[in-house]
Simulated scan of single mutants.
Amino acid sequence: MANIVLAHGAWSAAWAWKKMRPLLQAAGHQFYAPTYTGLGARAHLATPDIDLSTHIQDIVSEIEFEDLNDVVLLGHSYGGMVATGVADRIPHRLARIVYIDAFAPRDGQSLFDLVGPKAEGNMRKGAERDGDGWKMPVNPMPPDTSPEDVTWASPRRRPQPIKTFEQKIKLESKEPLPPRDYIYATRNGPGDPFRQFADRARGEAGWTCHELDTSHNPHITCPNEFMALLTKIMAGSK
């Protein structure tokens, strides 16, 4: 049984983990999935000032106000940026961090730094063209997403405030990090920005790397297989 807290991906929100909720509940876990300010059910709060620090504080506040300890913190995609910041702020409350096909920044890096200039340029152009300069249009779902899931998910996805990708993370804690696991989705295809972090996890102390035969959203495309891997990770198995 674990206290599991989610740092969800960009353009997404807590709703995207609908398939995982009954699986986690059946296993006896407490699952907390706060939605970031400006996205999902909180999209009405979107402003140009929302940045990475805003979303880090969203998750820190959830953990502190619920008085959670021994937390298994899940960071999916952009949520890896958020989870890294949360771990820097409150490492004493965390038991483990699981990066799910996620960005794993070092001190002083932004998400734009990690995707490279071509992807950054495309997203900035999209924000200028369709988002008043500060809202990045929604990325398409991966090609292996079923038509039913695309129909369900697409209308719920919302533009991402650009400062969340621009702000460089500042890591200050001197406390040791909890164990970190990396789940790499092997079907990401060309332009995959996540392999670099799987490679890091394979070669750096403090990490364990796992692979899952899926594209970028295992909580949508293969929830049962994903749950089985999470269960092994939380049990300390490799």
Rank of each mutant, 00 (worst) to 15 (best):
E120L: 01
P140G: 00
L177F: 03
S237F: 05
A185D: 11
M20C: 14
S53V: 03
Q25C: 04
V115S: 02
H76L: 01
S146M: 03
K19T: 04
R202M: 13
W152C: 05
D49E: 15
D130I: 00
K232E: 15
M227D: 12
D144E: 09
D67A: 13
L171C: 02
P223S: 10
A7C: 15
I90V: 03
A119C: 00
Y182V: 05
S77A: 10
M141C: 03
D130T: 03
L24W: 13
D130G: 04
Y78T: 01
F65K: 14
G79I: 07
R106F: 06
L23N: 06
D199N: 14
R42M: 07
S12H: 15
G85K: 02
W152K: 05
D51N: 13
V72T: 11
M141A: 12
H8P: 12
L212M: 12
E120K: 15
Y182W: 09
A46G: 08
A119K: 05
W11L: 03
A119M: 13
V150S: 04
T214C: 15
R187C: 10
G203A: 12
R156A: 03
Q109M: 11
K19H: 14
T186N: 08
I97F: 05
A205M: 04
P105A: 08
P218A: 07
A185P: 13
N217A: 14
E211L: 01
G131S: 04
T35N: 06
E211W: 02
T164V: 11
K232F: 07
R158F: 01
G85I: 02
R89V: 10
R180V: 01
M123G: 04
K168A: 15
K163I: 05
H8G: 11
N3A: 09
C209D: 13
H92M: 06
L171Y: 09
P34C: 04
Y78S: 02
H210K: 00
A153I: 14
V72G: 01
G126M: 10
W11T: 10
G191Q: 11
H76I: 03
T208N: 12
G79Y: 11
I97T: 15
G121T: 05
M227P: 02
L52A: 05
